[in-house]
Amino acid sequence: MHETLLQYISQYAKSSLTDEEKGLVSTAFLPKKLRKKQYFLQEGGVCKHFGFIVHGAMRQYSVDEKGIEHVVQLATENWWVGDRESYLMLTPSLYNIDAWEETNLLIVERADLLNLFQEVPALALMAREMDNRNAMASQRRLNAAISFSAEKRYSDFAKDHPEFLQRFPQHLIASYLGITKETLSRIRKQLM
């Protein structure tokens, strides 16, 4: 299970890990299995772990006062899950994160990750690269939400994440895109 994470770190850091660094990472990242619909984090709890998905699919969402779910992240293999604000600031989370499919993760506690950044430079490089990519993706998603039509948002989503169309139901994809499932259904019919 750790080999997937070690390859991921090397890929994004653009450098190989030493055997000692591989050992440190493998010791700090612990395996965790989630059943379908099992929570990784519930709203109001503090996010004590960040997870790397080895196998499975998860979603991160909030629930408004009317009980409507708003999906902010969909994630599959080689994606990270956790509430960054809660994890870093040790504050109650605004989000729920659960497994959409049976999921195998490697999880790391905050203190262990901070230590690893000191001891494994490639991990710190990977985190910086991922932070940059995350910031750019967030900016693009915000721009799409305020500027693009529902059709354009769906078409970009389908182009960028074709695997998600197979792994997640339409109502979750619609929520992620900020549209109703009826609108998504109409868009899909038009594209066929």
Results as ranks from 00 to 15, higher is better:
A137H: 02
S93M: 03
H49S: 09
L106E: 11
R59P: 00
W100A: 00
Q139E: 12
F40E: 01
V46W: 00
V81R: 00
N134Y: 07
Q170W: 04
D112N: 14
F52K: 01
L94E: 12
A57V: 13
I107T: 15
E119H: 12
A137G: 00
Q139A: 09
S155E: 14
C47P: 10
I173P: 08
H55N: 14
E163Q: 14
Y39I: 09
E102D: 15
A75Q: 03
N78R: 09
G44M: 03
L74H: 10
N104V: 11
H55L: 14
I146H: 01
G56T: 00
G45R: 10
F168G: 05
V71Y: 01
C47T: 06
Y39L: 13
A99D: 08
L116M: 10
M126L: 14
H161I: 06
Y39T: 15
S175A: 13
I68C: 02
Y61G: 04
A174N: 02
A127S: 11
P92Y: 05
H171G: 08
E85C: 09
N104F: 12
S62Y: 13
F40Q: 04
E163P: 02
L142T: 14
Y87R: 00
G45C: 14
L123K: 05
I107H: 09
Y61D: 00
M89C: 04
L94P: 01
W80E: 15
W80T: 15
V71E: 07
V54A: 12
N96Q: 06
G56F: 00
E151G: 00
L123P: 11
